[in-house]
Amino acid sequence: MTDTPILQFVDVVKSFGAGVAEVYALRGVNLAVDPGEVIAVMGPSGCGKSTLLHLAGALETPSAGRVLVAGDDLAGLTLHQQAALRRRDVGYVFQRLNLVPSLTAVENVMLPLELDGVASRAARGVAIEAMHTVGLEQQLDRYPDDFSGGQQQRIAIARAIVGERRVLLADEPTGSLDTANADQVVELLATLPERFGTAVVLVTHEPRFASYADRIIFLRDGSIIDESSASDVPPSIEPLVGMLR
């Protein structure tokens, strides 16, 4: 662990529209995510969860405040540098699988590396390692349509972590999966910090998946209203925790 958060929000405000039509998605959000930490983000629809991820991935820019990745303020990066950040440091997994259907599984995983100028042969080697991480190393050359939804999401995770990215942003990654596949995907995400030191920010509606996180933060109307961690179980429910053991 280092002292520098891998991801940090400082007084971040994000609004859309202007004047009377202005709508606030985030209102003064402060958040620090350590390397290797798993954070779950919960809250009602429209509370700003996805906006928070978009800002972390430099897919949008804040209206005020700062978003820093590994200490670097994203506002100080050129568009080219922001694109490089998305390819090298920050991986993104969406609810929709977003795999390129005409590429094989391993080619999909190689894609960000090749876009970053890594030679095909080297990119394939690194991509195979990532496919191994998600348990699909035996099915490198099959096409996305040949895989189940859960397997496709694991390929998407391989693509999002390939090249030792330091932050993985997952926006409802289990939304299109059945329970068994969803469990496998979240279990996989939760192992990434220990194996690679990757920090994971997981947006989810599901308490069972949020429970994998080190910390759970709650958004309401664009503000963080509370957070919980396993070490914060209040004394009054300790007897219940005892029963759960």
Partner: peptide, 20 residues
């Protein structure tokens, strides 16, 4: 709502950590 949700989630987290 917030205080009870936080407590219940903390409990689920503790259980999950133990199981893992």
């Amino acid at each position: 709502v917030t205080s009870h949700r936080t407590a219940l989630l903390g409990l689920l987290q503790a259980r999950r950590r133990e199981a893992r």
